[in-house]
Nucleic acid binder design. Sequence first.
DNA 1: CGGATCGTTGATCAACTTCAACGGTCGTGG
DNA 2: CCACGACCGTTGAAGTTGATCAACGATCCG
Lengths: 195, 195
Amino acid sequence: MFDVLFAHIQEKVDLTELDKESIQSFFSLRKLRKRQYLLQQGAICTHLSFVAKGLLRSFTVDEKGRDHISLFAWEGWWISDFNSFLFQEEAQLNIDAIEETQLVMISRADYEALTLKVPIMDRYFRLLYQNSLATKDRRLISSHTHTAEEKYLQLAHSYPHILQRIPQHLIASYLGLAPETISRIRKSLALRQAD
Amino acid sequence: MFDVLFAHIQEKVDLTELDKESIQSFFSLRKLRKRQYLLQQGAICTHLSFVAKGLLRSFTVDEKGRDHISLFAWEGWWISDFNSFLFQEEAQLNIDAIEETQLVMISRADYEALTLKVPIMDRYFRLLYQNSLATKDRRLISSHTHTAEEKYLQLAHSYPHILQRIPQHLIASYLGLAPETISRIRKSLALRQAD
DNA sequence: CGGATCGTTGATCAACTTCAACGGTCGTGG
DNA sequence: CCACGACCGTTGAAGTTGATCAACGATCCG
C-alpha cells in the first residue's frame, strides 16, 4: 500500500528513508466496499485520501436529486472535499467507491504536521496541485468550447482505459450530459466507424 | 508594488525581513496598457505574474475565432498559462489586459530558485493552489448544474464589484454563454425586480 | 467626423434534455 | 439454484434552453 504512495511521491520529489518513515507514521489505511461512502455532504471531511487500489467518485446532488460528478479517482490519485478538509467546514461533496478500494489517508492535523516535519511534502503537494489546476482549467474550457461529442471523445482519448471501468451513466454525469446523450453519441460514432 | 505582493503572501505565511529581500530580488516589474498582450497562444509563458494593479483575462480562441475566458485576474491574483510556464511548452492560453495593469513577475528559473531559497514559498504556493483548486471545482460543478441565469447570479453574488469593471460580453465569455443571453437575462431580472 | 466596439432586440434554429417504454444483465434472498 | 427486482443502456418522440443570425442605436476614441 505504502509502496504505491511512495512511488507516486517520488515521481515528483526525492525522499530519504527517514522521510519515508516519518511520512508513513502520519498515514492510516482503510478499505471501502463498492458503493460505500467515504464522505457525505454535510459531514466534515476529516481526511485526505490517496487511492492505492480501486476507484472512487466525488459528486454533488442538486435540488432535483441528480448527481454531478466532479472527479474520478483511481490508483495514484488523491481525493477529498478540499474546502471541507482545509477549513473543517461542512462538505459540499459526496465521495463513494465505484469499485472495492484501498486508501492511504491522512487527517487534517497530521497533514499540517507532515508538511512541517517533512518540508519537501509542501513541495510535493504544490507540484501536485499545479498539475491538477492545469487539468481543471482545460476541463472547464473544454466544457464551454466543445460539443457533447467532442467532450466524450476528448475524455476517451485522455483516459482510454478508464472508460472500461466506469459505467456509462457515470461518464455522462462527469461530462455534464444526460445518459441518453452518451448512448446516442456512442451509437453515432459506431455507425460512422463502420464506413 | 511589492507591498501588495508581500501583503498577499503574508495573509498565508509569515515572512521575515530577510525573506522579503530574497523574494524581491527574484521579481521584476512590468506595466501593460489596455488591450496589450501578456502572452499569446503558441508562445512560451516565461513568467508567473502577480497583479499589483489593474485587470487581465486569460482566454483561448476556438476554430471559429471565438474567445473563451478561463480567468479574470485583478489586484491580488496570479495569472499565467500553468502548463506552459511549468513545462515550457507552447501556451494554449492568451492573456491580455482589460485595464492598464501593473505586474510583479517571476521567471520560470527564478520561481524554482525562489522556492528553494525561501522554502516557505512552497507552502505559500501550496496554500494558494489549494484555494484555487476548490474554486475551480465549484465553478465546474456550477457550469454543469445551473442554468444560464443561475450562473450569472452566482457570479454577481460572488464578485459584485467586478461586474462593474468588466464589459458584459466578457462576462458572457467567462460563463460560456452568448452575449445576447446575458443581455436577455439582465433584462428579465430587471423586469422581475420592478414588481 | 467616421469607424470600431458594445449592448439590445427579434426571429429562427440546433443541440441537448426530458419523458416514457423496453430489454438485458446482475446479484441477492427465498 | 432459480426468480425477482434493481440497475443499466437503448430508442423514440416531444419539449426547452440557449445559440445563431441579422439589424439597429449608442458610445467611445482617434
